[in-house]
Design a protein around this nucleic acid. Structure first.
Lengths: 357, 357
DNA sequence: TCCGCACGGGAAACCGGTTCCCGCCGGGTT
DNA sequence: AACCCGGCGGGAACCGGTTTCCCGTGCGGA
């Protein structure tokens, strides 16, 4: 009777051993590398492996203590350009170092984040990398702290990538960038052009990233002895649609401003078309700035002034820092620099009509 | 002596059993769900689990035959918007169905693709999803065919997502979209506006996706009895920078054309900037169209006419189709529709100066 | 009172690998 | 000729779970 189609039988190491006429231990040694094996045995085993198209079960290896551990990263939405770049950095560096990557996206749901981390713990991931910001509430801190402890106790480690530390003593590796500083420099640049009423199209009110950028906005004002009008701070999320809606709303509402600072380039993109639709010229009537420096920022018209964030580097650093590190070493904190890249969307004030009615 | 910090000891099921005063089998049963266990025993076990913060090792479960298999997807670069959307679809549907996702990016290197698939086979992934196009050479087909067979023999399955089938009889699930049809409709739309010399900013010459779009371009011409000038077909890749470079080159070279069709929206974005830098108005002087309908296509100025591809749906379908399917069922082939979305970047010919010198 | 059955739980085999430990065998030394 | 030593390979324990098989107990019915 021939092999019925559908028998989908993987061969095990013992099948290989039987076919090569040796023991399973020997097969393992041939494949494993270092243990001395005679040339003749080796070729017999390798032939059997080839004939059976055998590949050792990575999970069984892992259980037995061999095998390279996998890395896990959890992010909100792989679709966001900055997330994607961080993820890319993580993934590249991980595979360069020979690790596989598990990925989960939470869609912004905190419960999912929790579930995923639990799953990653079950997978015995070498590290769990939380990519991107999060809603910063007391419960969040406490919960994340517990996760970090739990991971550390299991020999793994939590990494916060693009998210601020939890507080002293948490067994967490933090790799973030100077979020506030970037916003500060950007807004300072805008103010230096003479703008005094600059609209902030922010993110969710308690989101760490949004918060940092908002602090930079406020700080840059204060540094000039200015007090930003709270009415000029709007909240949405980091999507293109949010920028569009917020901008339309502000326009319809007759808010007065001469410049707009968007929380992200995507938000800026949406805001830009809203501005265009309202017949306003950028930067003639209104100046506009973004944040993130995603690749197509220069393809907007006018090319978008924004702040550059080394997202990919961030991801790479996250994995490089966390691997080869004792699981319960004290927290480590890396802070990467940002810089504003000046293009054409911010100009001096008072060169055109003015927004608002 | 207290627990020294650094002992990073995971607890095993036997630890839990010992603490609860039962056997490991019982712990497994309590956690597993269905087997009858007395209420008292259950609570004792659960308490021990909680006290030890125990999580069962997913890899050990997998070896023992329990546990949910993971899914794997391999793509070129998570950073590309269309890739990201497919990945998102895959990931969302997979977690909805309770599966974890492994991700690898090949950076366009075929050898990496091969390595990764081998790794996924070692991981005993339920399915391996190849996301996005690839260079279509005879070796590619043969190699991929072998991979498919090998995966099928191991009870897994290869899925091609956004990539054409390999030929008859391959144990492969294909979920793609009407790449050629979309390009055909788009170029037909451009031709209908009176354009006769339309420049194609294509992808790599033998890339499946690029090829399909090129076929659509040619087909639309032929259908009108036109013969496209080969000099108007340029090759690059799918990035923004490629579009920019190609467009600049075409302009400097003095190529004659009244419309530009870009292989992707990203390419179109780069091309648009090059056009603007050359002082040309779009669509006054030159019409421009893209492909993919990525979210910010409408934020370019003018808003980009493009073809919409249901990328996320594609990813979702890929996992839904492949799960709950016998591993060596005959090949299945799903083809999703595309449609052109008309915005402002394509206008009638002869309304402005003209590109080329 | 005795039998049988359902219920709950333990021992052990198993999943597919790795690795420790030991024994065999051939060759060089004394 | 006896001894020792080193290179190879096999048996078995182990990793951390699941599942089969079996047994002791307590209960209800005859």
């Amino acid at each position: 009777m021939t092999r019925k189609s559908g028998d989908a039988t993987r061969s095990t190491i013992r099948d290989v051993a039987a076919r090569a006429g040796v023991s399973a231990a020997t097969v393992s040694r041939v494949l494993g590398g270092v243990y001395p094996v005679s040339a003749q045995t080796r070729t017999r085993v390798l032939r059997a492996v080839r004939e059976l198209d055998y590949v050792a079960d990575a999970r069984a290896k892992a259980v037995a203590g061999a095998g390279t551990p996998t890395l896990a990263f959890v992010l909100e939405d792989i679709t966001g350009p900055s997330f994607a770049h961080m993820a890319h950095g993580v993934e590249r560096e991980a595979t360069r170092l020979g690790h596989l990557c598990l990925v989960c996206s939470t869609d912004g749901d905190v419960r999912h984040e929790l579930e995923f981390v639990e799953m990653m713990r079950a997978q015995r991931a070498a590290a769990v990398i939380l990519v991107g910001g999060a809603a910063d509430t007391p419960e969040y801190r406490e919960r994340t702290r517990r996760i970090a402890d739990s991971l550390a106790a299991a020999g793994s480690r939590l990494v916060l990538c693009g998210r601020p530390p939890l507080g002293p003593g948490a067994p967490v590796t933090v790799v973030e960038y100077d979020n506030e500083g970037g916003a500060y420099a950007l807004v300072a640049h805008v103010l230096a052009q003479g703008h005094r009423r600059v609209l902030l199209l922010g993110g969710k009110p308690d989101h760490t990233t949004a918060l940092g950028r908002e602090r930079g906005y406020t700080g840059a004002h204060r540094a000039r002895g200015l007090d930003p009008d709270p009415a000029l701070i709007l909240h949405g999320d980091f999507t293109r649609d949010s920028g569009y809606r917020l901008m339309r709303g502000a326009l319809e509402q007759g808010l007065e401003f001469t410049a707009v600072v968007a929380a992200t380039d995507m938000v800026a993109a949406g805001a830009l078309t809203a501005l265009h639709e309202a017949g306003l010229d950028v930067p003639g009537d209104v100046s506009l700035a973004g944040y993130d420096d995603i690749p197509f920022a220069r393809d907007l018209h006018p090319a978008l002034t924004t702040v550059h964030v080394p997202y990919e580097e961030l991801g790479r650093l996250a994995v490089r820092t966390v691997l080869g590190r004792s699981p319960d070493a004290p927290g480590e904190h890396l802070l990467l620099g940002t810089h504003v890249v000046v293009r054409d969307s911010v100009a001096g004030v008072g060169k055109g009509s003015r927004a608002g009615r």
